[in-house]
Design a binder for these strands. Sequence first.
DNA 1: AGTTGCACCTGGCTGC
DNA 2: TGCAGCCAGGTGCAAC
Length: 291
Amino acid sequence: MPELPEVETVRRGLEPVMVGARLVAVEQRRPDLRFPFPDAFSERLAGRRIVALGRRAKYLVADLDDANVLVMHLGMSGSFRVESGGSENSPAPGAPQKNTAHDHVVFALSTGARIIYNDPRRFGFMDLVPRDALAAHPLFKSLGLEPLGNELDGAALARLFAGRTTSLKAALLDQTLVAGLGNIYVSEALHRAGLSPRRAAGSLARKDGTPTERAHRLAKTIREVLEEAVAAGGSSLRDHRQTNGALGYFQHSFRVYDRELGPCPTPGCGGIIRRITQSGRSTFFCAACQR
DNA sequence: AGTTGCACCTGGCTGC
DNA sequence: TGCAGCCAGGTGCAAC
């Protein structure tokens, strides 16, 4: 399900529920997701207060009051839902009926709320690490630029992509370069920038490593599409929802993703959206206006 | 070192 | 209705 905008939407949904609350009990219903849970996972969490809930790339990072952090990744199909313990126990309009078949972790909070992690495909995972060891964590140490941070601009893209023969599509999916884009938003950002997903990533840098006009354009559209998607509450395809059950609505703003054979939305273009496969994943683009 | 393809897992949809 | 085949928002890892 989740690329950066969906993870950020989840973070914003969980933050007011989790931060300041204490974990009364954590029920871990299976030994592993994509990876085994850390030893004594539930026991180490029980009694801890959640001090902050942050995000790095597609990871959620919950700061605990014992100087550890709970790291959570949603994989392809992970989601959280909140069951309020308060008197007004009403889910958002349109909230889905509960599918509890793949509820793997249940966090019971001191406020009475429960947060349930559901993940049919189990590509997600959780880990518990000392906060000061997070940057050196195997899954964090090689993460690339945070695309909504200040570091991402044309110069940074050119520096990262210089000399690379791989496609722009593959380079943008590489989390060690820019961390947070996934299959949807790469297609969307490239279309907005008018760049072919098949173009060599290295072509965004001049010989001396300085950024081309295209590099500046791409940096701008990456930021734009992610910001717009976050503002829309992410995209709801298949089962992804916000933590209160509400649907995100950015999928209605997709210009190319999942729009094979549809008209190119670029004014005056007249092209047709095509679907191709790159590194085993679908890419959607318009060959007429994306060069 | 950079690049590519496979593997992990379940469920939903399509077409026979 | 049943079932095989394909596809899905991610990413670690082996192999070239």
